[in-house]
Simulated scan of single mutants.
Amino acid sequence: MTYAGPVVPTAVFGPRTAVGAAHALVLAPVTPRWDEGAFFAPVIRTLAGAGLRVTVVDTLSLWDESVDSMAALVARCRALLPDFGRVDLLCGNALGGAVAQALLPDVDPATAVLLVSGPARTDAVLEERLTRIADLAAADRPGAALALLHQRVLPHGAPGTDGEAETVAAEPVPADAEAGRRLAAGMRLLCGLDVSDAVRAHRGPLLQVVGSHSQLVTQRHTAAAPHHTVHVAPGAGMRPHAEQPAEVSSLVETFLWEKGLR
């Protein structure tokens, strides 16, 4: 069965019709609005530069009020998968990474997987931080929620993070009600997550990149089989691909080369 819901926003990069081009499917993180793939720009450039066709999906566009769990969101994404044809590289960032890992039983066992700060499981600390952001957004304070999210994606100890103290910016980032709905929904969907078994059972290659100084997703939130790789980017927060683009690009290029995807 293919997906029969509302149109899902996508953005396509690289060769769109090249015969034999490998195809990368990227699932987006929680964003206040669809940014057409800007969140993953450094990685997209690397993938497209290696000759891959890259399709980026607005993961949260699959959510509505009837979706009350990660399992329900994953079910909608699972129904959408056939519409994208062959997927050689399944990618995900943050929420998108969690969904990608939950989908592993439904893709070809040989599919390569690339994750950036994509949790396989959550814990009490991470869930408390996600819930705080969600609660602000649900309380009609989307600007404050977005400001706190921006603070939390920075590396621990970076200017503006106030150490481990959780503060809300005095002048919140402008945001609208729709942004608040997306933030609240996306953060809460991650709570209670554990797809570790699906990840460890995946026989294909997998590269996960997390920041050593992340205030949200860290190495302890990842899962991997012995043939998978979890790379911890020194000093990085939730966005190692944006904070250390050269290092992450090199990792991705090597991963593609070793797996015959370029």
Rank of each mutant, 00 (worst) to 15 (best):
W63F: 04
W63I: 06
W63S: 03
D64C: 06
E65T: 13
S66D: 14
S66I: 00
S66L: 00
V67Y: 07
V67S: 08
V67D: 10
D68N: 08
S69H: 08
S69R: 10
S69N: 07
M70L: 15
M70C: 01
M70Q: 11
M70V: 02
M70R: 07
A71T: 14
A72Q: 15
A72N: 05
L73E: 06
V74E: 05
V74K: 00
V74I: 07
A75I: 00
A75V: 01
A75S: 11
A75Y: 01
A75F: 01
C77L: 10
C77W: 09
C77S: 00
R78M: 00
R78Q: 10
R78P: 03
A79M: 05
A79R: 14
A79P: 00
L80G: 02
L80E: 03
L80Q: 08
L80F: 04
L80S: 06
L80C: 01
L81W: 01
L81F: 01
L81R: 04
P82C: 14
D83G: 15
D83A: 15
F84S: 06
F84T: 04
F84H: 11
F84A: 12
G85I: 01
G85Y: 11
G85T: 01
R86F: 05
R86E: 12
R86Q: 15
V87E: 05
V87M: 10
D88L: 11
L89T: 14
L89H: 12
L89P: 11
L89Y: 12
L89W: 13
L90Y: 14
L90H: 13
L90S: 12
L90F: 14
G92N: 12
G92S: 09
G92C: 07
N93W: 09
N93D: 06
N93I: 03
A94P: 00
A94T: 08
A94G: 09
L95K: 02
G96A: 10
G97V: 07
G97T: 06
A98L: 05
A98D: 09
